[in-house]
């Protein structure tokens, strides 16, 4: 029950952050779009999200490990973004970094509890790490069109976060008696619109109403 509340709370934060960013993006684009059109009417290839965050929930260990690997990256990323030359981005980040700090702490506590728990929870946490780790390298890549933004001080260079992310993950996995994977094959492509097979079904569910009943409102 508590965990149901926690996941719903974190989901609400993430939706709120996405809404703020889409609203801002639509204003900058200035093409008559709004947040809903960006969310409901773009095709899969137009989505530039990380592959990590479109991976299925799986079991509870996979859900929590995914949340943790992402939070350990996005939490310091938001903090750097508070220094953005774009005042709206900086304000969105100032709000989001307070929320992500709670997400990071909560998911890290669960990773430790699962890894350092029973033989079964340890096995599942280890399997989740192995399953998700190949998607983590992509977080530090700079998409072709984003280096301009970093050069103008609008967004941070994610490569600068590699060390801090690794320190956090290494610390938590150590406490969880889980090994930090070394090297290995890494998958990327999400930032350029090349997704895993899991995004399609997510978008189908998200976009169903607007695709079937264009322009429907409450």
């Amino acid at each position: 029950m508590e965990e149901d509340m926690a996941l719903a709370n974190m989901g609400l934060d993430l939706i709120g952050q996405a809404r703020a960013l889409y609203t801002h993006a639509a204003e900058i684009e200035d093409a008559g779009h709004d947040e809903d059109q960006l969310a409901y009417l773009r095709d899969e290839r137009a989505y530039g999200n990380l592959l990590l965050v479109e991976q299925p929930n799986g079991d509870f260990a996979q859900t929590m490990v995914r949340q943790f690997l992402y939070a350990a990256f996005i939490d310091p990323y938001w903090r750097l973004l508070t220094g953005s030359a774009d005042a709206t981005l900086a304000a969105i980040a100032a709000k989001a970094e307070k929320e992500s700090a709670y997400h990071l702490r909560h998911s890290a506590e669960w990773v430790i509890r699962l890894g350092d728990g029973t033989a079964e929870s340890h096995r599942r946490a280890r399997a989740a790490i192995a399953r998700l780790f190949p998607y983590t390298n992509e977080m530090f890549d700079v998409p072709a069109d984003e280096d301009v933004l970093a050069a103008e001080g609008l967004v941070p260079d994610p490569a600068a976060l590699r060390a801090v992310w690794r320190d956090t993950v290494s610390d938590v996995l150590g406490r969880a008696t889980l090994a930090l994977p070394e090297g290995g094959w890494m998958q990327s492509g999400g930032r350029d619109g090349r997704h895993s097979e899991h995004l399609g079904p997510l978008l189908a569910e998200l976009q169903f109403l607007q695709r079937s009943f264009p322009g429907a409102t409450w």
């Binding site: 709120g16 952050q17 809404r19």
Partner: peptide, 8 residues
């Protein structure tokens, strides 16, 4: 001003 990003 919103208190939280997703405050309903």
């Amino acid at each position: 001003t919103p208190t939280y990003s997703g405050c309903p």
